[in-house]
Design a protein around this nucleic acid. Structure first.
Lengths: 165, 165
DNA sequence: ATGAGTGCAAAAAGTTTGCACCGCT
DNA sequence: AGCGGTGCAAACTTTTTGCACTCAT
């Protein structure tokens, strides 16, 4: 889904998380480590339910509960390792916010797919507007809605296939 | 909250809604009319619960149920009269999407206030990116997060007040 | 021992829905 | 009469929380 190359990834997410937790007098437990590893095992977008499902069968002899997944994801967000990018199927969709450049998404109303795109101009504009408004901006979330290229022309494609049979 | 002037408002929202409903073989009932009027009685952002609360005491001798508010708001969204702009307090926040120019919002993490701002460049950029991606864009939702000007300096203000007492 | 952390189940909170009754056309 | 619409309450979904138990230091 993402065609961006990782950057600034000097330290593994687990370590980054451990550092964050330490500043709060908390520990990187086995459960938390399992969750972080699962989340950073690929660069796909994800939602809580997906992670819970993936961790339903024991990893390293441990099964992580839904409650812990919720609690840990909230902390990963605070730590700045992940962020909410959109809302689909009534669920928050998250993505990595560590080692990847800022970007935004197109969301297809038909297939629900998220397509990332990167544009520095938008961030620059927001910085400028924030300054004007005296707003101390910490980040943004931009979803463009519509129909993706693939879903936009399925009838034509089907027609073509039929013609060839 | 909004300092934008209405535009393109040739027909009242009620009429616009009636037309929309008609195309689907549905009627503008008294309940629906009450809801639309309530929603368009001002230009503030709103969420479902607020509208339900405002309509809890009978209007024109009728009390509108929560279920009907949900059903009607969904239809108003389909009709393009309102749109979701953000999510605050775990609720969808709506605003008028009829007769008002496209704009985006800054959301204060402290006081939850929405500050509107308008910037044509952003829409233009999105149009351009959409074209590149072959995405058929219908609209976008952009939330900038951070701390608003008012909340950014409350300690100083409090201090000032105490000094004067 | 002590405090953080977890699982479980119950509880919230927001939203949807089945159903019987109501009312407009 | 007929079909759309409504209110109510129950159901559902996602997320949070109270509590007793566990684990690491």
């Amino acid at each position: 889904m993402s065609d961006f190359a990782p950057q600034n990834v000097a330290v593994a997410p687990e370590e980054k998380f451990r550092e964050f937790l330490a500043t709060r007098g908390k520990r990187l437990t086995q459960e938390r480590e399992i969750i972080v590893r699962e989340i950073f095992s690929d660069h796909e977008h994800f939602d809580v339910d997906e992670i819970v499902a993936r961790l339903d069968k024991p990893q390293d002899g441990r099964r992580v509960s839904r409650a812990t997944v919720y609690r840990t994801i909230a902390q990963l967000e605070e730590a700045g390792l992940i962020r909410k990018v959109a809302r689909a199927n009534d669920r928050e969709v998250y993505e990595h916010d560590y080692g990847y450049p800022q970007h935004d998404h197109f969301i297809c109303a038909k297939c629900n797919s998220l397509t990332e795109f990167r544009n520095e101009e938008i961030s620059a504009i927001l910085e400028r507007v924030a300054l004007e408004l005296g707003f101390r901006m910490s980040g943004h979330r931009l979803e463009a809605h519509g129909i993706c290229a693939t879903c936009a022309k399925p009838p034509a494609r089907r027609h073509h296939k039929l013609d060839m049979i």
